[in-house]
């Protein structure tokens, strides 16, 4: 059992690579349609692996609760503010969660936000891709937090801005692989051009949120990260008697 646990990750990678190689053959079999089926399979496998990593790690009850709450806050961020239409702080929330709490919490917060908000807004073929895109946003922000723990407002604003476009790019991959043929860079550019303005709004919104709320939110989250660490002190015989 322990062997399988260790080997699952390499096996899954080999399987994904095998799928990629087989796509050359499968594509011929499905008349060039293979990618519509293969791309979601690969995305779902990646998600399963990432969740499995979360299952295996040591996570305290405090971490579980805080991760769930961060995911919920990001999910609520998808509901637009009544007075500020078209502004959704979901990506921004996921990025700062990952930045403060690390890659694993960032991924969980992002993918939970996508899945849970879709329980209420309606699941669709976009769900795995959104889970993947937001999860990746959280993870990359977590990696940023590890490599550049002192990354300031400017760096993270640019980072959030770029994620607006990256998010659109990942979501475009879904439309592109599923419904456009043939898959070449011209058709990708055309698909991307169709969503360019939405992505620009998204990126600008992210940057604005980080510029305005980033530092104060990071401060709040860092306070809670310190609260997460619980040290249990061993009971010493003498103390026990003293207590009695």
């Amino acid at each position: 059992m322990a062997f399988w646990r260790k080997m699952l990750f390499p096996f899954a990678l080999v399987f994904i690579l095998g799928l990629l190689l087989a796509s050359i053959k499968i594509n011929a079999l499905l008349l060039g349609q293979g990618w519509g089926l293969l791309a979601p399979v690969i995305i779902i496998m990646a998600l399963v692996l990432l969740y499995w990593g979360f299952e295996q790690g040591r996570v305290s009850s405090r971490e579980v609760a805080v991760i769930a709450m961060l995911g919920t806050i990001a999910a609520v961020g998808r509901v637009p503010f009544a007075a500020l239409p078209n502004i959704q702080p979901a990506t921004f929330m996921v990025i700062i969660s990952g930045f403060v709490f690390g890659p694993r919490a960032g991924f969980m917060a992002g993918s939970t936000a996508a899945l849970v908000s879709n329980f209420f807004l309606g699941q669709g073929p976009w769900t795995p891709w959104q889970m993947f895109a937001w999860g990746l946003a959280g993870t990359s922000a977590g990696v940023m937090g590890i490599i550049f723990p002192r990354a300031g407002k400017k760096v993270m604003t640019v980072f959030s801005f770029l994620w607006g476009y990256l998010f659109g790019c990942i979501m475009n991959l879904w439309t592109w692989t599923g419904f456009v043929h043939p898959l070449n860079w011209q058709s990708f550019v055309a698909t991307y051009a169709a969503s360019f303005w939405f992505d620009t709004f998204h990126a600008t919104g992210n940057a604005a949120f980080y510029l305005l709320f980033g530092p104060s939110f990071v401060k709040i989250l860092q306070r809670f990260r310190r609260k997460l660490e619980v040290t249990l002190l061993p009971v010493i015989e003498g103390d026990k008697n003293a207590a009695l």
């Binding site: 579980v64 769930a68 609520v76 939970t112």
Partner: peptide, 12 residues
């Protein structure tokens, strides 16, 4: 993971 998801679903 199911616990995280159901907590978040309940909190939403």
């Amino acid at each position: 993971s199911a616990l995280v998801l159901s907590l978040a679903t309940r909190m939403f």
